[in-house]
Design a protein around this nucleic acid. Structure first.
Lengths: 208, 208
DNA sequence: TTGTCAATTGTCAGTGGCTGTCATTAGCCT
DNA sequence: AGGCTAATGACAGCCACTGACAATTGACAA
């Protein structure tokens, strides 16, 4: 961001995003129109769509940051860890630093509110799930390289990630319908669920 | 479907669905407008939306049938089976009968084509994934009742289903990008992946 | 059979997300 | 200063979807 032009662009994008998130959280996602956002920032509607591919992209922008953060955490895991353990450590440890990462962009409370909104807004949930497919593909690639296997012939990277991702998405959802909306609660729920995956897959749940 | 009125409604719905699927598969999902469908059936656009909540619902109608079929298969599993084994058997066995179930509505080939279209069309994939969240919730409820546990306090039903669902969605996706577009190939891939989940979650993938 | 009631449909007008196009503006660089 | 290019605004248009109201059509009883 050297030139004036680039700084201006940056500021416009930030203004659009900040305004969008504020309107979403105060008025609701569906009740907020793109025109509302553009007008509040005093740009044309067309300009909004030059910065964001759609209304959803603005709403999911914060999630995107955490996704990138998580992927980076996975990449930085020491190579001696087993695949699933690396994933587990990446989330658990990634969460310790997530607070700062988000706070650099927006208040954490805003992020948490958006998370809940994503889970309760059909259009956003759909977009979020579709995005996670891509993320899982990337995660599988990271695992495959880590372990030195070929994703095209060995299904294990994708399988491991599919299982892990399934648990993660369940965590998000259950967190959003719970009553403790803190980052710590989410972290605790993640750890708890990952611990219980084994038992849940075991032979029988009944105590005989 | 006793009265004339009900029969007429049924016929209209079938005509809309049949026409929609035909246009989707020949022209493509996005290049087909709701107006095209309505016009081909000679009803107003408004009528289409009285039968389908949206364009997506028509496109996913066949999937919905297989989902219902699969859920029924799970319900009919003998209670002595362990949870995951019941799910596994339900898919494997459900597939033997799926052919007839679908053929009663539309050619299987059409169904398979739509499956691939769902995976390759962002809007449809998103809608499909969002729907799977609901399906998984229902499946968890079935498992919980089977095993006599309380979903609100015991996370195992949802966990088991999340893991299983993750593998299922991976199967769908990998099948759609493969080269064998048959029902048998899908069945085989399912069995194969379910077999390999264990190894994929195991300590290490490296041969030392 | 006819008249009444309710369900189904068509029409119309409108909203909102999103895109293409083109002229205008505004920063950049020599 | 002046030409070049990137960013924006303005406008027109497409398409999915909805609400409201009037017209039609089948159901059912008198």
């Amino acid at each position: 961001m050297e030139t004036l032009r680039e700084r201006k662009k940056q500021r416009t994008r930030e203004a659009l995003l900040r305004t969008a998130l504020e309107l979403f959280t105060t008025e609701g996602y569906e009740r907020t129109t793109v025109d509302d956002i553009a007008e509040a920032v005093d740009v044309s509607q067309r300009t909004f769509f030059r910065y964001f591919a759609g209304k959803e992209e603005a709403a999911l922008a914060l999630m995107e940051v955490t996704v990138a953060h998580f992927l980076q955490s996975v990449r930085e895991r020491p190579p001696h860890e087993a695949p699933m353990e690396a994933l587990r450590q990446a989330v658990v440890e990634g969460w310790d630093t997530l607070n700062d990462v988000i706070e650099a962009i927006a208040p954490v409370e805003l992020y948490l509110r958006m998370c809940r909104m994503v889970e309760s807004t059909p259009a956003l949930l759909a977009a979020h799930l579709r995005r996670s497919v891509e993320v899982e593909e990337e995660m599988a690639a990271i695992l495959a390289e880590r372990e030195g296997v070929d994703m095209d012939t060995d299904p294990r990277p994708r399988l491991a990630v599919a299982v892990f991702g399934g648990v993660m998405r369940l965590t998000e959802r259950q967190w959003s319908v719970g009553e403790d909306f803190s980052l710590d609660a989410m972290r605790a729920l993640t750890v708890s669920y990952l611990e219980q995956v084994g038992p849940a897959l075991s032979e029988s749940w009944r105590t005989h």
